[in-house]
Design a protein around this nucleic acid. Structure first.
Length: 411
RNA sequence: GUGGAAUUAGCUCAGUUGGUUAGAGCACCAGAUUGUGGUCCUGGGGGUCGUGGGUUCAAUUCCCAUAUUCCACCCCA
């Protein structure tokens, strides 16, 4: 038997119901905020991700599905959604057009990681990107959108917030930190020594107690923000407080993608195991420029749909549509013909096998239809059809015309 | 990529100190004297016990390898 690749799942039945339920709800919220759908290719030039996500990141460094295609192009399956949207934004010359452009997207992403619950090799994200708005109000809007979506899904969360500074304050801080860590190099763990060269900010996240003891005295970015970033960060907090959104400052929150600056946030859930981040995002004012566009401020976020699906409780959907069946072999054809006609306007579940009334009722109940419609000997002779409303427990024998005219009203 | 656990029916799991036909609940199908559902009753189908090797008279059970899932690390959505 051939089975799916490791970490790649099929989505069907009840799972698919939740999947589409989430998508339609998230789409509705995004549209309420004035965002428009964008679809970008799943396959892109590898260079796009190297330049945007960053070579030092784990995503690019070791998790990409990368290969050379038949035209000798170095390509890879997208590991995240922002890079493609930004590429499209620039390619369509929207950076030159000026103004504000807001997009949302959803689709599969690919990362070659070791699978575990909430971490798949092919997974799905829903995300939004906003271009051309410098104001921190847009950052707040992003957070509100996520909050709105989670609220409508009935999902609880904790919001973590941090500021990563800008090109004025981040580089000096980074150097500061490198200097600090280098001084203590002999006493820190192997991982940390490696991180200094790749992504020094990450050392602050180290789980080793001996490292944490040392880093307690390390310089903190939040205390080294320039005036601009500092006041924006406090304004962000004020705005969130005014909107009634609670948050916690997490100075260790470092978005693992190199393009983030200033606002960084992450929504986590305590109910889905160790892969607890259900949404994450932030500002990336310099990315458009990195990808050869005109400097354009931008903010965005992405949500992990599979992780959310663990938490979504579907509203109970009631009985819907019609079940039709025949009680005798010679009536089946008639019932099938009638079902086809009824399907012009309604959902009809059809049983081709003749059964007694009791079994038809059972079957109708099982497929959760509102009406059970059966033709037996009596109905065949009178040119009628017997209909029972399974919800209201009422029943009636109708002429064929009356049956076709039924539109879900109680009998 | 590192460490650990698990894998028996469609699903959730028992079980065999190595020995004839491997069990339960749920689900599925069919009946319950031939027109009234979601609770009951009776019966039935369905498993080469994850896969491949090894030890043995005999392996689902012991050993090795491998795959997958899960947990922790790592990372992130």
């Amino acid at each position: 038997m051939i089975s799916s690749l490791r970490g790649m799942n099929d989505i069907l039945s009840e799972e698919y119901e939740r999947f589409t339920y989430f998508l339609s709800l998230a789409t509705k919220v995004a549209q309420r905020y004035g965002f428009h759908f964008i679809e970008t290719p799943i396959l892109e030039e590898t260079a796009l991700f190297k330049r945007s996500v960053g070579e030092s990141s784990d995503i690019v460094g070791k998790e990409m599905y990368q290969f050379i295609d038949k035209g000798e192009n170095d390509v890879c399956l997208r590991p995240e959604g922002t890079a493609g949207v930004v590429r499209a934004f620039i390619q369509k010359k929207l950076d030159r057009a000026g103004g504000i452009h807001r997009f949302f997207y959803h689709g599969p992403m690919f990362r070659y990681e070791r699978p575990q619950k909430g971490r798949l090799r092919q997974f799905h994200q829903f995300g939004v990107e906003s271009f051309g708005v410098e104001s921190v109000h847009e950052d707040v809007s992003m957070i509100m959108m996520v909050s709105d979506i989670l609220k409508e899904l009935g999902i609880g969360y904790r919001l973590k917030l941090n500021s990563l500074g800008c090109k004025e304050c981040m580089p000096p801080y980074r150097q500061n930190l490198i200097d600090f860590v280098t001084i203590h190099e002999e006493h820190i763990c192997e991982d940390c020594r490696r991180r200094v060269g790749t992504n020094p900010i990450r050392v602050l996240d180290c789980k080793e107690q001996k490292c944490q003891n040392i880093y307690a005295d390390a310089p903190k970015l939040i205390n080294n923000l320039c005036t601009g970033c500092g006041s924006e960060f406090s304004k962000l907090q004020t705005l969130l407080a005014q909107s009634g959104i609670s948050y916690e400052i997490d100075t260790h929150l470092v978005r693992g993608l190199d393009y983030y600056s200033k606002t960084a946030f992450e929504f986590v859930s305590d109910n889905i195991g160790s892969q607890s981040a259900i949404a994450g995002g932030g500002r990336y004012d310099r990315l458009v420029e990195f990808l050869d566009g005109r400097p354009t401020p931008a903010v965005g976020f992405a949500m992990g749909i599979e992780r959310l699906m663990e938490l979504i409780v579907m509203p109970q959907n009631g009985r819907d549509g019609y079940y039709m069946g025949a009680m005798d072999e010679n009536t089946v054809d008639l019932v099938v013909r009638m079902a086809h006609q009824k399907r012009g306007s309604d959902k009809v579940v059809l049983d081709y096998k003749p059964k007694n009334l009791k079994n038809h009722l059972k079957a109708a109940d099982k497929v959760n239809t509102r009406f059970c419609c059966v033709i037996g000997e009596n109905e065949l002779q009178n040119g009628t059809i017997w209909v029972k409303d399974l919800e209201h427990k009422t029943e009636k024998t109708l002429s064929h015309e009356e049956f076709y005219a039924l539109a879900g009203e109680p009998l």
